[in-house]
């Protein structure tokens, strides 16, 4: 177990580059010396110009991109060196990710799309569906749509389904990529409420918010990722 004072998310000196083997093996460094820590109950906003590497950092933390060096410790597990099954376990039980886009299997009902993270940790089906239903109701997805696949929904509806799915299970650590984009005022308030509740129960959160008002309402501090840009000399 971790000592209680340890940060939930602890990123140390992470670098990332892309090598394009099929384009003359060009190597493009995109991040260097990224270091930050987020404790339980804390929400950190990533800021920086578009293209500064906010999304890249989120993907590195989630294990979706492979870091070239450094350590990314989530609940004590180093994502950079972990086995795939350890990362999957981490994603099931510890680290949630609300991306901007919903990616689901066709034919699965909206209710089950939202309940899936709970089922993945062996929550009984009825409990999982109850929780999914209350989230969908909270996010104003009409009940008549719950039995349909969200693939046919509007962009805004898909975004809300995605958020419901992301908040269905109480992850100790969460990554939020533009969770309030393209939401109306009422739903935006609901999402900010969900984030506040997650902080209150002790979740460590890293978020990207273009919406400044939302950012100021939920974030405890900000990290400018421009500081992690690779130095030209390197």
């Amino acid at each position: 177990m971790l000592p209680s004072h340890a940060p939930m998310i602890d990123i140390r000196d992470v670098s990332k580059s892309f090598t394009l083997h099929n384009q003359g093996s060009a190597t493009i460094p995109v991040m260097q010396g990224a270091t930050l820590a987020v404790g339980p109950g804390e929400c950190v906003g990533l800021v920086g110009a578009s293209g500064a590497g906010k999304s890249t950092l989120m993907r590195l933390i989630y294990g979706n991109y492979l870091a070239a060096s450094g350590q990314i410790l989530i609940g004590g597990l180093d994502v950079v060196r972990a086995e795939p099954r350890q990362i999957l376990e981490l994603r099931r039980k510890t680290l949630g990710y609300v991306s901007q886009f919903l990616r689901v299997v066709p034919r699965v009902s909206t209710l089950d799309v939202v309940a899936e993270p709970l089922l993945a940790v062996d929550t009984p089906l009825d409990l999982a569906r109850d929780r999914a239903a209350s989230l969908l109701a909270e996010l104003n997805i009409p009940e008549r749509l719950w039995s349909l696949s969200p693939t046919t929904f509007s962009g805004g509806e898909q975004q809300r389904v995605n958020i419901a799915r992301g908040f269905a299970y109480d992850y100790p650590a969460m990554l939020l990529d533009e969770p309030t984009a393209s939401l109306d005022a009422r739903n935006r308030a609901t999402v900010l409420g969900l984030i506040g509740a997650a902080k209150a129960r002790g979740a460590a959160i890293i978020g990207i918010f273009h919406d400044e008002a939302a950012r100021d309402q939920v974030c405890d501090r900000f990290i400018d990722v421009s500081a992690f840009a690779p130095r030209a000399a390197a």
Partner: peptide
């Protein structure tokens, strides 16, 4: 080898990059 989404979204080997692209 690796985690499925990592290999598909951040392929390291030349052949995988070609396959994905």
């Amino acid at each position: 080898t690796g985690l499925t989404d990592q290999v598909l979204d951040d392929p390291q080997h030349a052949y995988t990059q070609l396959l994905v692209s």
